[in-house]
């Protein structure tokens, strides 16, 4: 791609949320406080997209329950490269309060490469934003290579 245009490529990381059996706590944080509605990561060019095909940064919450595992992996496969994964909350990292439950298949990084971990139950909005910023940097490197 043209050199002049290439410097703008990293300016629109679109966010996509996957709920892997979360209790909805982290999802509420994502949807209503942490990112666009209150603390405005839209200023970085981020935008929530509804379809996995439009996604650049994937936010996964929840401990990966047995029921949802196949679907999560399938949706993850549908996301075009390059993609960066952020695990939001303690559940995808270690299972959190659901750890050792009979219905949990996690931790998530057994199945999906996780780039950024944001622990917390739920994490503070500031922590989520820092995670997004780190993910943006990783994504920037990746997309610059592709472009």
């Amino acid at each position: 791609m043209h050199k002049y245009l290439k410097q703008f490529v990293h300016k629109s990381p679109w966010l996509y949320r996957i709920n892997a059996g979360s209790c909805n706590g982290c999802d509420v944080e994502l949807a209503t406080t942490a990112l666009i509605p209150r603390y405005d990561v839209e200023r970085l060019g981020c935008k929530y997209c509804g379809s996995p095909r439009h996604a650049d940064i994937v936010l996964i919450s929840g401990p990966l329950t047995t029921r949802v595992k196949e679907r999560v992996l399938r949706v993850y496969e549908e996301i075009p490269h390059p993609k960066v994964t952020v695990a939001v909350g303690i559940c995808p990292i270690s299972g959190g309060v659901f750890r050792d439950s009979y219905s949990i298949e996690g931790p998530m990084d057994r199945y999906i490469p996780i780039d950024v971990n944001v622990p917390g139950c739920p994490p503070r909005p500031q922590a989520i934003m820092e995670g997004i910023l780190k993910a943006c940097e990783i994504w920037k490197k990746q997309i610059m290579e592709v472009a």
């Binding site: 839209e42 200023r43 075009p80 472009a147």
Partner: peptide
């Protein structure tokens, strides 16, 4: 109107530039 800063004015252009580098599925 929602008391946020908002994206840069050229954000739609950046979106187009980014989308043109991604793969078509």
């Amino acid at each position: 109107l929602q008391r946020r800063v908002g994206p840069p004015v050229l954000q739609p252009v950046f979106d187009i530039i980014k989308l043109s580098t991604k793969e078509i599925l």
